[in-house]
Design a protein around this nucleic acid. Sequence first.
DNA 1: TATATTTGACCTAATTAAGTCAAGTCAATA
DNA 2: TATTGACTTGACTTAATTAGGTCAAATATA
Lengths: 100, 100
Amino acid sequence: MTLGQKIRELRERNQMLQRELASKLEVGDGYLSKIERDQKILKREHLKTLSIIFKCPLKELEALWIATKIYDIVKYEETGLEALRVAEEQINYNKTYAKI
Amino acid sequence: MTLGQKIRELRERNQMLQRELASKLEVGDGYLSKIERDQKILKREHLKTLSIIFKCPLKELEALWIATKIYDIVKYEETGLEALRVAEEQINYNKTYAKI
DNA sequence: TATATTTGACCTAATTAAGTCAAGTCAATA
DNA sequence: TATTGACTTGACTTAATTAGGTCAAATATA
Protein backbone atom coordinates (compact mmCIF):
# COMPACT_ATOMS: atom_id res chain seq x y z
CA MET A 1 0.00 0.00 0.00
CA THR A 2 1.37 3.37 -1.04
CA LEU A 3 0.27 6.77 0.18
CA GLY A 4 -1.37 7.47 -3.16
CA GLN A 5 -3.35 4.25 -3.02
CA LYS A 6 -4.39 5.04 0.52
CA ILE A 7 -5.61 8.50 -0.38
CA ARG A 8 -7.59 7.20 -3.32
CA GLU A 9 -9.10 4.49 -1.18
CA LEU A 10 -10.14 6.99 1.47
CA ARG A 11 -11.51 9.39 -1.10
CA GLU A 12 -13.56 6.76 -2.90
CA ARG A 13 -14.84 5.24 0.30
CA ASN A 14 -16.18 8.69 1.07
CA GLN A 15 -17.57 9.11 -2.42
CA MET A 16 -15.59 12.20 -2.99
CA LEU A 17 -14.41 13.42 -6.37
CA GLN A 18 -10.79 14.36 -6.97
CA ARG A 19 -12.04 17.86 -7.63
CA GLU A 20 -13.67 18.02 -4.22
CA LEU A 21 -10.74 16.66 -2.29
CA ALA A 22 -8.36 18.80 -4.26
CA SER A 23 -10.33 21.87 -3.35
CA LYS A 24 -10.32 20.94 0.32
CA LEU A 25 -6.56 20.58 0.12
CA GLU A 26 -6.42 23.76 -1.93
CA VAL A 27 -4.52 22.23 -4.82
CA GLY A 28 -5.42 21.60 -8.45
CA ASP A 29 -7.12 18.33 -9.37
CA GLY A 30 -4.41 17.44 -11.85
CA TYR A 31 -2.00 17.51 -9.00
CA LEU A 32 -4.16 15.30 -6.82
CA SER A 33 -4.43 12.85 -9.67
CA LYS A 34 -0.68 12.59 -9.72
CA ILE A 35 -0.50 12.18 -5.99
CA GLU A 36 -2.92 9.29 -6.06
CA ARG A 37 -0.73 7.63 -8.67
CA ASP A 38 2.41 8.37 -6.63
CA GLN A 39 3.86 10.51 -9.37
CA LYS A 40 4.09 13.41 -6.98
CA ILE A 41 4.25 13.60 -3.25
CA LEU A 42 2.23 16.10 -1.28
CA LYS A 43 3.31 18.41 1.47
CA ARG A 44 3.54 16.82 4.84
CA GLU A 45 1.15 19.40 6.30
CA HIS A 46 -1.55 18.06 3.99
CA LEU A 47 -1.49 14.81 5.93
CA LYS A 48 -3.08 16.51 8.90
CA THR A 49 -5.89 17.79 6.74
CA LEU A 50 -6.40 14.33 5.29
CA SER A 51 -6.44 12.71 8.69
CA ILE A 52 -9.16 15.11 9.78
CA ILE A 53 -11.25 14.83 6.63
CA PHE A 54 -11.15 11.05 6.63
CA LYS A 55 -10.83 10.47 10.37
CA CYS A 56 -7.74 8.42 9.73
CA PRO A 57 -4.82 8.15 12.17
CA LEU A 58 -2.18 10.71 11.28
CA LYS A 59 0.61 8.33 12.25
CA GLU A 60 -0.53 5.87 9.63
CA LEU A 61 -0.48 8.50 6.90
CA GLU A 62 2.91 9.69 8.05
CA ALA A 63 4.38 6.21 7.93
CA LEU A 64 3.12 5.89 4.35
CA TRP A 65 4.45 9.33 3.48
CA ILE A 66 7.93 8.54 4.78
CA ALA A 67 7.84 5.10 3.18
CA THR A 68 7.08 6.69 -0.18
CA LYS A 69 10.15 8.90 0.17
CA ILE A 70 12.28 5.89 0.99
CA TYR A 71 10.81 3.94 -1.86
CA ASP A 72 11.65 6.76 -4.24
CA ILE A 73 15.29 6.34 -3.30
CA VAL A 74 15.52 2.59 -3.65
CA LYS A 75 13.03 1.75 -6.37
CA TYR A 76 15.60 1.42 -9.11
CA GLU A 77 18.33 0.01 -6.89
CA GLU A 78 19.41 -3.56 -7.18
CA THR A 79 20.63 -3.49 -3.62
CA GLY A 80 17.53 -1.73 -2.36
CA LEU A 81 16.49 -4.34 0.16
CA GLU A 82 20.03 -4.77 1.39
CA ALA A 83 20.34 -1.00 1.84
CA LEU A 84 17.09 -0.98 3.80
CA ARG A 85 18.49 -3.60 6.09
CA VAL A 86 21.63 -1.54 6.64
CA ALA A 87 19.57 1.56 7.35
CA GLU A 88 17.54 -0.35 9.91
CA GLU A 89 20.76 -1.42 11.58
CA GLN A 90 21.87 2.21 11.71
CA ILE A 91 18.59 3.25 13.30
CA ASN A 92 18.80 0.56 15.91
CA TYR A 93 22.41 1.37 16.60
CA ASN A 94 21.67 5.00 17.19
CA LYS A 95 18.64 4.18 19.26
CA THR A 96 20.81 2.09 21.53
CA TYR A 97 23.62 4.56 21.86
CA ALA A 98 21.53 7.71 21.49
CA LYS A 99 24.23 9.39 19.45
CA ILE A 100 21.98 12.08 18.12
CA MET B 1 28.20 0.75 10.18
CA THR B 2 27.77 3.93 8.19
CA LEU B 3 29.49 4.86 4.95
CA GLY B 4 31.61 7.41 6.78
CA GLN B 5 32.75 4.85 9.30
CA LYS B 6 33.55 2.44 6.51
CA ILE B 7 35.63 4.97 4.63
CA ARG B 8 37.57 5.90 7.72
CA GLU B 9 38.17 2.26 8.51
CA LEU B 10 39.46 1.55 5.02
CA ARG B 11 41.62 4.64 5.04
CA GLU B 12 43.19 3.86 8.40
CA ARG B 13 43.72 0.23 7.60
CA ASN B 14 45.74 1.46 4.63
CA GLN B 15 47.59 3.99 6.75
CA MET B 16 46.46 6.81 4.60
CA LEU B 17 46.00 10.38 5.75
CA GLN B 18 42.79 12.27 5.06
CA ARG B 19 44.87 14.63 2.99
CA GLU B 20 46.09 11.81 0.81
CA LEU B 21 42.73 10.21 0.25
CA ALA B 22 41.14 13.59 -0.31
CA SER B 23 43.65 14.34 -3.01
CA LYS B 24 43.00 11.00 -4.71
CA LEU B 25 39.31 11.84 -4.70
CA GLU B 26 40.14 15.36 -5.77
CA VAL B 27 38.30 17.04 -2.93
CA GLY B 28 39.44 19.15 0.01
CA ASP B 29 40.42 17.43 3.23
CA GLY B 30 37.87 19.38 5.22
CA TYR B 31 35.23 17.85 3.06
CA LEU B 32 36.56 14.35 3.54
CA SER B 33 36.58 14.90 7.26
CA LYS B 34 32.88 15.67 7.11
CA ILE B 35 32.21 12.66 4.97
CA GLU B 36 33.88 10.35 7.45
CA ARG B 37 31.68 11.82 10.16
CA ASP B 38 28.58 11.46 7.97
CA GLN B 39 28.00 15.18 7.98
CA LYS B 40 28.17 15.20 4.22
CA ILE B 41 27.61 12.55 1.65
CA LEU B 42 29.92 12.15 -1.31
CA LYS B 43 29.09 11.76 -4.95
CA ARG B 44 28.13 8.30 -5.97
CA GLU B 45 30.85 8.27 -8.61
CA HIS B 46 33.42 8.53 -5.84
CA LEU B 47 32.40 5.09 -4.66
CA LYS B 48 33.99 3.54 -7.72
CA THR B 49 37.25 5.30 -6.98
CA LEU B 50 37.11 4.13 -3.37
CA SER B 51 36.39 0.56 -4.37
CA ILE B 52 39.44 0.60 -6.62
CA ILE B 53 41.77 2.29 -4.13
CA PHE B 54 40.81 -0.02 -1.30
CA LYS B 55 39.94 -3.12 -3.32
CA CYS B 56 36.55 -3.17 -1.69
CA PRO B 57 33.39 -4.48 -3.38
CA LEU B 58 31.51 -1.61 -5.00
CA LYS B 59 28.16 -3.16 -4.12
CA GLU B 60 28.99 -3.00 -0.45
CA LEU B 61 29.85 0.70 -0.65
CA GLU B 62 26.71 1.37 -2.65
CA ALA B 63 24.51 -0.35 -0.10
CA LEU B 64 26.04 1.84 2.60
CA TRP B 65 25.64 4.93 0.44
CA ILE B 66 21.96 4.27 -0.17
CA ALA B 67 21.42 3.32 3.46
CA THR B 68 22.89 6.64 4.53
CA LYS B 69 20.39 8.45 2.34
CA ILE B 70 17.55 6.47 3.83
CA TYR B 71 18.83 7.05 7.30
CA ASP B 72 18.92 10.78 6.65
CA ILE B 73 15.20 10.65 5.97
CA VAL B 74 14.15 8.65 8.98
CA LYS B 75 16.65 9.58 11.65
CA TYR B 76 14.38 12.04 13.40
CA GLU B 77 11.17 10.12 12.72
CA GLU B 78 9.35 8.38 15.50
CA THR B 79 7.81 6.02 12.99
CA GLY B 80 11.08 5.44 11.17
CA LEU B 81 11.21 1.70 11.59
CA GLU B 82 7.55 1.31 10.72
CA ALA B 83 8.08 3.39 7.58
CA LEU B 84 11.03 1.19 6.65
CA ARG B 85 8.82 -1.83 6.96
CA VAL B 86 6.19 -0.25 4.72
CA ALA B 87 8.83 0.67 2.14
CA GLU B 88 10.07 -2.92 2.13
CA GLU B 89 6.55 -4.09 1.50
CA GLN B 90 6.29 -1.70 -1.43
CA ILE B 91 9.53 -3.00 -2.89
CA ASN B 92 8.43 -6.57 -2.59
CA TYR B 93 5.04 -5.76 -4.06
CA ASN B 94 6.56 -4.13 -7.09
CA LYS B 95 9.08 -6.89 -7.48
CA THR B 96 6.27 -9.38 -7.62
CA TYR B 97 4.10 -7.47 -10.01
CA ALA B 98 6.88 -5.73 -11.92
CA LYS B 99 4.94 -2.52 -12.11
CA ILE B 100 7.90 -0.43 -13.04
C1' DT C 1 -22.11 14.24 -24.68
C1' DA C 2 -20.92 15.44 -20.20
C1' DT C 3 -18.19 14.39 -16.34
C1' DA C 4 -14.08 12.58 -14.15
C1' DT C 5 -9.51 11.54 -14.54
C1' DT C 6 -4.91 11.43 -16.58
C1' DT C 7 -1.03 13.22 -18.87
C1' DG C 8 2.62 16.23 -20.50
C1' DA C 9 4.73 20.38 -20.58
C1' DC C 10 5.83 23.88 -18.00
C1' DC C 11 7.05 26.97 -13.98
C1' DT C 12 9.14 29.12 -9.62
C1' DA C 13 10.77 28.60 -5.05
C1' DA C 14 13.06 26.03 -1.83
C1' DT C 15 16.23 22.67 -0.66
C1' DT C 16 20.14 19.77 -1.15
C1' DA C 17 24.53 18.67 -3.27
C1' DA C 18 29.00 19.32 -3.41
C1' DG C 19 32.09 21.52 -2.21
C1' DT C 20 35.97 25.54 -0.29
C1' DC C 21 38.60 27.89 3.09
C1' DA C 22 40.38 29.63 7.24
C1' DA C 23 40.40 29.27 11.96
C1' DG C 24 40.30 26.16 15.79
C1' DT C 25 41.28 21.83 18.33
C1' DC C 26 44.04 18.11 19.93
C1' DA C 27 48.01 15.04 20.63
C1' DA C 28 52.63 14.15 20.23
C1' DT C 29 57.18 15.95 20.23
C1' DA C 30 61.41 18.68 19.89
C1' DT D 1 56.36 25.19 26.00
C1' DA D 2 56.01 26.18 21.35
C1' DT D 3 55.51 23.81 17.26
C1' DT D 4 53.89 20.71 14.15
C1' DG D 5 50.84 17.66 11.82
C1' DA D 6 46.31 15.65 11.49
C1' DC D 7 41.87 16.51 11.86
C1' DT D 8 37.46 19.20 12.83
C1' DT D 9 34.35 22.91 12.53
C1' DG D 10 31.62 26.85 10.94
C1' DA D 11 30.50 29.97 7.65
C1' DC D 12 29.99 30.44 3.13
C1' DT D 13 29.12 29.57 -2.07
C1' DT D 14 27.17 28.01 -6.44
C1' DA D 15 24.99 24.57 -9.16
C1' DA D 16 21.73 21.08 -9.50
C1' DT D 17 17.73 18.94 -8.05
C1' DT D 18 13.36 18.44 -5.94
C1' DA D 19 9.10 20.32 -4.12
C1' DG D 20 5.00 21.81 -5.11
C1' DG D 21 2.46 23.06 -7.94
C1' DT D 22 -0.66 24.92 -12.71
C1' DC D 23 -3.07 24.36 -16.98
C1' DA D 24 -4.81 22.64 -21.21
C1' DA D 25 -5.32 18.79 -23.95
C1' DA D 26 -6.12 13.82 -24.21
C1' DT D 27 -8.65 9.89 -22.38
C1' DA D 28 -11.63 7.14 -20.25
C1' DT D 29 -16.36 6.32 -18.35
C1' DA D 30 -21.29 6.68 -17.64
